[in-house]
Amino acid sequence: EWCEALHSFTAETSDDLSFKRGDRIQILERLDSDWCRGRLQDREGIFPAVFVRPCP
């Protein structure tokens, strides 16, 4: 499952995944309604679900 970043997100901890608006992120797991775990290029981490939308 893939999503597109609606806003940029800067990691606040070593577990977070930083990304820029427009990045396509592979969703690996939905942790709960607020957080997802994903992969961007060679990095993995968690990020807020409200920062992304599903890719068509």
Score class of each variant (00 low, 15 high):
D15E: 13
A5T: 04
C36L: 14
A11G: 14
K20F: 10
A5D: 04
D23I: 02
H7R: 14
G38R: 02
R30I: 06
D15Y: 11
F51S: 13
P54D: 13
W2L: 04
I25M: 03
V52G: 03
K20R: 12
K20N: 08
T10E: 13
A49I: 09
E1G: 07
R43D: 10
S33I: 06
C3E: 00
S14R: 12
I46L: 12
A11I: 03
S33K: 13
S18Q: 07
V50N: 09
A5Y: 00
D16W: 12
W35N: 05
Q41V: 08
P56R: 15
R39V: 07
S18D: 10
I46V: 11
G22N: 00
T13K: 15
L28W: 01
R53D: 11
S33F: 10
S14W: 07
W35C: 09
D23A: 04
T10H: 12
R39I: 09
F9V: 08
E12M: 15
C55G: 06
D15A: 14
P48Q: 07
S18T: 10
D34S: 08
D16C: 13
P54Q: 08
F9I: 06
L40E: 00
F47C: 04
V50C: 12
W2E: 13
W2V: 08
F19K: 03
H7Q: 15
E4P: 06
G45T: 00
A11N: 04
L17P: 01
W2F: 15
L17M: 08
F9E: 03
C3K: 02
E4S: 04
S8D: 15
C36D: 01
R53N: 07
F51K: 12
D34R: 12
I25K: 01
H7I: 14
A11F: 00
H7D: 12
R37Y: 14
Q26M: 14
P48Y: 06
D42Y: 04
V50Q: 15
K20I: 08
E29P: 02
R30C: 10
T13W: 03
E29V: 09
D32V: 02
R53C: 08
P48M: 05
F19A: 04
F51W: 08
R30G: 05
D15T: 11
T10I: 09
L40A: 09
P48E: 01
E4T: 12
G22P: 02
S8T: 14
A11R: 06
R30K: 12
T10M: 12
R43A: 11
S18F: 05
G45Q: 01
T10P: 06
L28C: 07
A11T: 06
R24N: 06
Q41Y: 12
W2N: 05
L40T: 09
D16N: 15
Q26C: 07
L17S: 01
L31Q: 07
